[in-house]
Amino acid sequence: MGDWLSEVANWWFAAVALAMGYAAYRVVTSANVVHAVLALVATLGGSAVLFLLLGAEFVVWTVVLVYIGAVIVLFLFGIMITRAPLGYEAELDHPPKTKALAAIVAGAMFLLIGWTLVDAFGTEEVTASVTTVGDIGLQLFGRFVLPFEVVSLVLLAALIGGIVLARQDPVDIEDQR
């Protein structure tokens, strides 16, 4: 433990992990929808710092740009459009009985994964090695070019699907006239 504390990166990790844990807790418990979204921003920002500690620079910027930039904005739109209650709202969650069941299931999952991890990896060391954008680019357009294209198709399908789903039915628009 002394060794662990002597490393500066670990202090960073501890601070960020605590903040992330609290923020994630707020995501799932906050009674205010906007607060929950902002807590998710904090969690994702924390994960970006962790990626930085691990030397994954490109992932850091992607998380910041795509997640924190785009996805969160999408969420805020979703909240506004669906007129989700913006203030505090008791009705956001299920009754305590359901909550208890959910907590048991989630807790069981955490214990299971945690036990497995400790059993498997113990105190294995990990050291950060910086991966440059160039390295990622070479791999992405070399070995991973096919999955990359497939993902772009997924995005296209999602784009079209989003439009088809969210647009108003022509009949409805006619009716409104």
């Binding site: 400790v118 990896f121 060391e125």
Partner: peptide, 8 residues
């Protein structure tokens, strides 16, 4: 840094 701190 140990691996498990991230995984857990």
């Amino acid at each position: 840094m140990i691996l498990n701190q991230f995984l857990i």
